[in-house]
């Protein structure tokens, strides 16, 4: 589609970015064709419709907020050996074997039979056994959902928190198979992890 000079000039006036020289040029064109002002008026009205339509279409964006990431605790590379113990613990925990510490884990999570379960914190738990757990930091939360509240005055944001935690353990297990092929926890000598480590 060819676009003539008049259309370009009108478009610039609609965008309010015309120069004085361009306005004079448009004025001169209108001197020969007074219907030009009518075409300008029509295009201004189209622009108002366009803005209203687009504003309505993108309004949903106002309900989408970001959750800024929190500072992340950096794990030094030389400490990765410690993850072997952590991994063994995780396998052990998921398999439902007894944890070395007592009481409910922080955050209400507890070992289940082969899968993680969320449980309400035990009100009778006096915190015994938690003194060895240290929060190192938090990984950026994962945004799950956000939606405006009923009255539209705020946003209801659902995020998943990921916490790095350090635990001192005295016993480490790994999952092994017995003669009949059944999975069972087998204690691992701590000497296997004798290399320097943060974990």
């Amino acid at each position: 589609m060819e676009v003539n000079r008049e259309t370009i000039l009108i478009s610039k006036v609609v965008d309010r970015c015309e120069t004085p020289a361009e306005w004079s040029e448009l004025d001169t064109l209108a001197g020969n064709d007074s219907a030009l002002w009518s075409r300008l008026r029509t295009m201004l009205r189209d622009d108002a419709d366009l803005r209203a339509a687009v504003a309505s279409a993108v309004a949903v964006a106002d309900a989408v907020a970001v959750v800024p990431p929190l500072p992340v605790a950096r794990v030094p590379w030389w400490s990765l050996g410690g993850w072997m113990a952590a991994a063994a613990l995780a396998v052990l925990w998921l398999a439902g074997a007894p944890l070395p510490s007592t009481g409910t884990s922080p955050g209400g999570m507890s070992p289940g039979n082969g899968r993680a379960e969320f449980q309400a914190a035990d009100p009778a738990d006096d915190g015994h056994g938690r003194e060895q757990r240290t929060a190192l930091g938090e990984l950026p939360p994962v945004l799950v959902r956000s939606q405006p509240t009923e009255d539209g005055s705020a946003l209801r944001v659902v995020t998943m928190r990921r916490i790095l935690e350090e635990t001192v353990v005295r016993q480490v297990f790994q999952v092994d198979e017995d003669e009949s092929g059944e999975l069972r926890p087998v204690q691992v000598e701590l000497a296997r992890f004798a290399q320097p480590s943060d974990y």
Binding site: M1, V3, M43, D46, D47
Partner: peptide, 16 residues
């Protein structure tokens, strides 16, 4: 961009 906006507006006007 200037030309595309002008053409886009012309298209919109013709269609409207």
């Amino acid at each position: 961009v200037e030309t595309r906006l002008a053409r886009g507006r012309r298209m919109l006007r013709q269609a409207m």
